[in-house]
Design a protein around this nucleic acid. Sequence first.
DNA 1: AACATGTACG
Length: 505
Amino acid sequence: MPAWGSIPGFHRVLKRDSFYYSRLLQCHSSPKSVARIHAQIIATGHGHNPFLASKLVSRYTDLGGRGIDDARRVFDRAPQRDILLWNVMIRSYANSGPQTEAIILYCHLRRTSVRPNCYTYPFVIKACAALGDENEGRAVHADAVRAGLDSDLFVSNALVAFYAKCCEIETARNLFDEIPVKDLVSWNSMIAGYSQNDCAYEAIALLHQMLREDVVTKPDRVTIAALLPACAALAAVQEGMWAHSYVIKTGMEMDARLGSGLVSMYANCGRLDTAQELFERVREPNLILYNSIIRAYGMHGHAKEAVVIFSKMLEMGIEPDGICFICALSACSHAGMVHEGFEIFEMMDSYGVEKGQVHYACMVDLLGRAGQLRRAVEFIGRMPVDPGGDVWGALLGACRIYNDIELAEEAAKKLFLLDPENAGRYAALAKMYEDVGRWEDAARVRKALRDRGVRKPLGCSMVEVDTEVHTFGVEDESHPMTAEIYVVLEQLQKLVVEDEIAAIG
DNA sequence: AACATGTACG
């Protein structure tokens, strides 16, 4: 702009119509120049032009921060609003928040004579998904049906993602199946939906359906990133390695999104070394990638490494979040690093991260596993918030290790009140009674458990051998090779004990 | 002017 202005007579050749300002906005992105062009638009009498208002709304929103407020001022002052202007303003709120504003604007729009079009619905539905507002989303869906736009591919894809986000995974699948010609986003939305709803098997099955049935649509980095949590959940190392090889084969850059998914997948499949190699390969690491690798070390008992990499992350200036502290604290607790755990716990305040139930539970677990049950109880007593099921559950787990039945009863009593549907914890108490021969008490707990009806499945480990997935639960004797497995398990336990003795001596 | 992606205690 300054360069053009310096050409003599330029302003006479160039007509300063709305297209001129539109182009001008296209090539200027700093807050100052956007504001200056905005002033010019008003000064030259183009302020009433809804097309320019749309451009300004988009531009201001792109600036980030408080830019969206400037965008809203442009929208509010526009003397006339066409559907484009409504759409870009709704889009701004859907993407940058507050998403409730997107919905409020849509409601205003419905009361005008301007008709929403096939661009409007994806924006509004996205806002509903971000808020998890199921009722509003259903209403918008109904509007789209009435407007005859629900068969639009973008609207359908947005609805699939929305219902998946609201845990209506079957509704999502039904809509997905209705899409006659699916595109990459259709497949990605549905695969991601399954992954996020703990339907790991379905996610992987759908990928295979995509590869089999849709010859034109090829998986991209979004497909892979959505698939990886499913591979991790099933410890499906074959599928996970296929995903990894696909990344390499198609020359995808190893960004933090793919990296964190792959790190977690390999860690869950027991391949810590591969997870570590992958972590180092990511050029621009971010918080989530660090969280993944810290958890990976922690879950494999390498707490020292987990803490080292946690410190390295802080040195790099990456701000930790609540999840990051959960990963670091649990690493400490599995390795008995009580002192380090408390240091990290105290750091939460200085980083402005709020301490949640899970963090307190980690600390109880840390003390409890280390055998400091009294200190754990004191810690619970000093908590500034009411201890929840997570906290009592951690204490109960520790009582189980150290056979403190009285304290276990106390913790279990609280758990019955707070978290009556969690079967695994009562099973732990019942097992303790059985260990000391208090069969009647054990039977009483198991009966109470049955009476409550809902039985959450117990946790289990999995391992994939060739093409078969084997699962193992606590006290599980259902596997055809149970006898052999327990022989090996006993050998391992002997090795661990010898190792511990060697470490002490 | 459009919809889809990663990390979480026991």
